[in-house]
Structures are given as structure tokens and as C-alpha cells.
Design a protein around this nucleic acid. Structure first.
Lengths: 331, 331
DNA sequence: AAGAAACATGAAAGCACTTTCAGTTTAACA
DNA sequence: TGTTAAACTGAAAGTGCTTTCATGTTTCTT
């Protein structure tokens, strides 16, 4: 009857003509069962391909650890690259990787409500997402935050403000005076907004150097190639166009490069472009950019987390990953 | 009494003065419970430190709400894009995504040995990895293969041979006669080799059109930008260089474009380039390519898998995703 | 104000096993 | 042959949770 389903110990019992108790005994204390009966049962188990589930589960939950990652749904390449660092570090340690992608604020709230209770995890990494103090309090497992600071939790932070400064300083040093900013507007309410920070560092550095940043030079575009190109083109078609553009994201920097190419503007001679992230793509495009060590940030988060799991008494760590300028051909 | 033990929902029920059904409800469908009652229950849960036992839940539910994906370690962007499709589809259905990354053959074998026993998954997706008949037999949960055919398991297949033909036919139609192929050599023993198939389709189509494919026009390079560029440059520096190159992968197509740019070879006027995959990057680079609907393949695999989980009597499905040529600016 | 519809809750029946307890065999021994 | 201890085995009572069904309560119609 129950032919190709998942067999239970009832099926085995029927098949071997004994009661379920005996099956259970064969499994758990074989010596208490008559050898003949035992063999009959074992045969039945084999022929049915029976796998005792509870036991398997128990073993699963004990032997291999599970760590969860809550991440914005990975459209942006930078998330993926961080995730890659996490996966790499985890694979080495024989931990399972459970991924929770969030697409709405409710989604996120939901995860925070249920994961600590029911997630069955040994540790949690929250990637590029904000977490309220209330939710922090609810967390009953070791947790590491990436790209979001918190007093009581370990974090791997990126100093986006400093990143903005680095970009500005570099462009200023190169002699540029008309420098524009291009960021993204995709700011779903549940996400964090590093772009704003990058802009603010950028602003500060320009101000300190006594360089004006007209509002027409600060542009935001949705996070798509087409729209970024469009906005970049507007910038470049200004009567007094910028001689340099700092894009808050490599992905958008690529859009700028593309727009420049279409307008026959030579890079870096007529237009310097600096990105942010140092995605894999940046190397392909020879993009000068601010590297934030995406892979590394993931790896580091895992390291801290596993340390904490192994020894919960370890102190909370707040790590600031250094940003570095990668000088390539676009600026 | 049961003071510092592991509290159960019975304890919570007693503490909050409601029945266990209500506890279960606030855990699983909070909106079905009066807010006041819910808060009482939540308080009790908090103060008891109650954590529902996953095993009991899984037993009652007869499913775990977790589906696993075995994937090659995601260096190649195409894996990630497929994964994205999977994650998107799964999140909608409220399933957890557990990722197992494979880096060695032993690793893979290991997963196949342990996952059926211990994985405690409702279903499994095996992405771009081969699976032996012996391992197929061991699998005791619904499984869908991506990019690898199997008689007894559902699969989402890519017709790489046809893809190679499409590329060749297109370039031939465009008038090219000296057409080269650039594939990758990173063929770890555990992985599948779609590039070989693409080459073979490409070869066939050329042969049928009576066009010669000299061995010097078939080049393989490791899957890195630098080495791809190098090999592409060699191809382009041949005394009789090709007028078109079919790269087995978008990632490598980008390398070719880059090499051409460095050699001041105009694309598509002097050199046509066709890629394969249609990665996000392809759009940025305006690359003409063979689209294999990566996201879609992931989504589809999930759909089939969940269908099978819901109703195991559904027949095995073998889906061939259509390949389409996306004509952009490089050929 | 009566009846309908919508809500909120609890009782109880699973789910797939484990374990205790008591009954039945069997084998050994006088 | 009759006892008896040892060895087996099954019935049944858990285990912690979900879910259906039924019963009470509200709230809404008209």
C-alpha cells in the first residue's frame, strides 16, 4: 500500500510480522532482541529503505552546526560577494548555511520574531540590514552584524563616511574641481543606506578643501543600468559638466562609464570616474574604486561568530574593515 | 516544578492560562489570536525561555519547511544568478533555503552520503553537478536536478549543444567565415562540463555550413579575466585572426572584449563577439549572447520540487529551457 | 432586537517514535 | 514432569507539537 512513500516503523513492523516496539528495539538496543527476529527486522528495514527519522533529526541537530544569514534579497552584486565570503568560510567549518532573504520590512520583522525561537540555529549573521534594540534583545543566539553598528552585538562595520572622503580627496589631489556624486535611490524602508554616508563623507572632504558642490552635481538614480546611464548623461550634458564623478557603487560607476562612452567622452582624460565596492566587475572595467573587501567582510563575520559559538564568553567585537583606494584606469 | 527544564508548550499554556492550541497558534499564525491573549502568551514564552522543539514540530507537520541546494562553490556568476532564482521562488513559499557548497569531489560524495540521512530537508535541488545512479538511488527525498539529465529524477536541462549551434548559425548568417571558440578549462572532476557541449554544437553547425574550424581557433583558458584576455589576445594576434569569437561564457566574452579594446580592435566592425549565459553584466557590456534564463531555471526547479513535495505522485518532469539569442551590440 | 457572519478558543486526534510494564516463551534444572 | 529464571515481545502510555472540529462570543446586518 504505502509502497513508494517514506516508510515508518509501522511499515517495517507489518513487513516483518512483529510489533513496532520490536523495531524500535532493534534500532536502539539490538542486543535485547532475539537474533532471528533481529535479522528479519533488518531485512525488512533494508528492503523498505527505512530511515528512522527522529534519530536522523537528532543527529542532524547535534553533529553539524547551522548558521543563518539574513540578507537583503540579492539583486545587488555586493550582497552576493559578501555572501560568497561567508559561504567560503563556513564550508570549511562543516557548518550548514541557511539563507533568509528579506524583501520587505514586514519580512524582516517576521524573521526576527521567528528565527530566534524556531530557527534552530547555532548562530546568526545579519547582513546589511538594520536591527532594532528590541529585536537585539530577543536574539538568544550568537549574532554578528555586517554593515550596521550595535553596542551589544559584534559587528563588522564599513566606514562609509571615510570612503566618501577617500574618493573626494583622491579626485581633488588629481586636480579636479568640478566633482559630481551619483548615488542610488533604491532605499526600501527595511534596508540600510550606506550611500547617504558615502555622500556625506564626500561632501565634508570637498567642503574642507573649499570646493563647492552645487546641488545639480548630486544626483540619485534608481539602481538599474538604464536609469543610471540616463542620469549620468544628464550630468555630462550640463553646460558646465563635472570633470569627475564619484559613483556610490561600482554598479553605478559602470553606468557612468557607459554613458561617457556613448557621449564620446574619454575616460579618464575628460572625465574621471571613481566607484565604490570593488566588485569583480570593477576589475573587468578597469575601474578605479574604493575597495571594501566584500569577501573578507563575510569571512570575518563568520570567524567572529564561530569564535563566539565555541566560547560564548568572548567579548563582543566591533571591527572596522579598512577601505582602500584601488587605482586603475578610470581616474 | 518544571522550573529550569526545557519548557514545552504545555508549560507555556499553564503559565498563560490558555490551551496549548492557542500557544501553537500564536507561534504559527499569530493573526488568528486576539492581541491581548497573544501578548499574554508571548510574555509567558519570554519568561519561560520557551523554544519549540523542531523535531516535534517536524513530526506533527510531516515536513520541515527546508529545502537544500547543492551547488558548486559560487565563483562563477552564473551559479549565483541561478541561486537567485531559487531564493526568490523559495522565499515566496516560505521555505528555508539551506545551501551546501561543493569544492571537491569528496565533498560532493559526502553530501550525497549524509544529506538523505541527516539533512532533514523536504526537498533537494542539485545545481550544475553530476550525480551517479548509486547516489540517485540513495536519495529519499524529492529532488530536482539542474543542468544534468537523469531518467528517474526531474531535471531542468539546458541544451548546450543547441546553444553552440545558435551562436555559430548567427555568426555565419552575419557573413563570418573565420570564427573562433574560446572556452574555459576549469574542469574540476566533480563538475559538469557544459562548455564541451557548447563547443560541440558550435562545431557541428560550422561543419554543416562547410566552414572550417582550424584547431588554432579552438582555445581554452582558465576561468579568470587575465588569462582569458591573454588567450584572446593570442587569437587576435594570429596572422589570420578570426573575425568573430564565440565565448562559451559571458564572463569570458568580457575578457575577449577587453583584449580587443586593448588591441584597438573595433567591436563589432572588426571583431564580432558572442557570449553565453546572459548574465547581468552582459547587459552592461552590451554583449550579444545566448540567453539561458538563469534566474528562470532556478525558479522552475523550485516550482517542480514544491509540486512534487505537495503531491509525490506527480510524474517526473524533464524540462528543456529554451535558449534565445539576445542581439546587442557586439555581434 | 433577532439572526447571521466572523472571531476566538479548547478538546481531541493525529504524527513517528521510545520506553515501560506486563505477559508469554523458552530453556534449564531438580 | 514441574518450576523458575531468563529472554522475548507487544500493548499502551508517553513525547511536544499541529490541526480539525465544535463550541462559545462578538460584532454586524437589516
Amino acid at each position: 500500500m504505502n509502497n513508494h512513500k517514506n516508510p515508518t516503523i509501522y511499515d517495517v513492523a507489518k513487513r516483518s510480522g512483529v510489533s513496532i516496539s520490536t523495531i524500535s528495539r532493534v534500532l536502539n538496543s539490538p542486543d535485547k532482541v532475539n537474533a532471528e527476529t533481529r535479522n528479519k527486522v533488518l531485512d525488512a528495514i533494508d528492503s523498505l529503505g527505512f530511515i528512522p527519522k527522529a534519530e536522523a533529526r537528532a543527529r542532524a541537530l547535534r553533529q553539524t552546526g547551522r548558521i543563518g544569514v539574513i540578507t537583503p534579497f540579492f539583486t545587488a552584486p555586493s550582497f552576493v560577494q559578501r555572501l560568497r565570503g561567508i559561504a567560503a568560510a563556513l564550508a570549511k567549518e562543516n557548518f550548514e548555511l541557511v539563507i533568509y532573504t528579506v524583501e520587505t520590512a514586514a519580512h524582516l520583522e517576521n524573521y526576527f520574531a521567528s528565527i530566534p525561537l524556531t530557527g534552530n540555529l547555532d548562530g546568526l549573521i545579519v547582513m546589511s540590514l538594520p536591527i532594532s534594540d528590541a529585536n537585539v534583545k530577543r536574539l538568544n543566539i550568537p549574532t554578528v552584524l555586517i554593515e550596521y553598528p550595535n553596542e551589544t552585538l559584534s559587528c563588522v562595520e564599513i566606514d562609509d563616511v571615510a570612503g566618501g572622503r577617500i574618493a573626494a580627496d583622491y579626485l581633488i589631489k588629481k586636480g579636479h574641481r568640478r566633482i559630481a556624486f551619483l548615488g542610488d535611490t533604491d532605499l526600501p524602508e527595511y534596508a540600510i543606506h550606506p550611500v547617504g554616508q558615502r555622500l556625506s563623507g564626500f561632501r565634508q572632504a570637498l567642503a574642507e578643501a573649499g570646493i563647492e558642490l552645487p546641488e545639480s552635481f548630486v544626483r540619485l538614480a534608481p539602481y538599474t543600468q538604464a536609469q543610471t546611464r540616463q542620469v549620468a548623461a544628464e550630468l555630462l550634458n550640463l553646460p558646465q559638466p563635472p570633470t569627475a564623478i564619484f559613483a556610490a557603487t561600482d554598479f553605478q560607476a559602470l553606468g557612468v562609464l557607459k554613458a561617457a562612452r556613448q557621449l564620446n567622452i574619454r575616460v579618464p582624460e575628460q572625465l574621471a570616474v571613481v566607484g565604490f565596492d570593488d566588485l569583480d566587475m570593477a576589475e573587468y572595467a578597469d575601474l578605479t574604486t574604493i575597495r571594501q573587501h566584500l569577501d573578507e567582510s563575510g569571512r570575518l563575520a563568520v570567524e567572529i561568530l564561530l569564535g563566539r559559538i565555541a566560547d560564548p564568553s568572548r567579548p563582543v567585537q566591533h571591527i572596522h574593515l579598512p577601505l582602500t583606494l584601488v587605482e586603475r584606469e578610470t581616474a
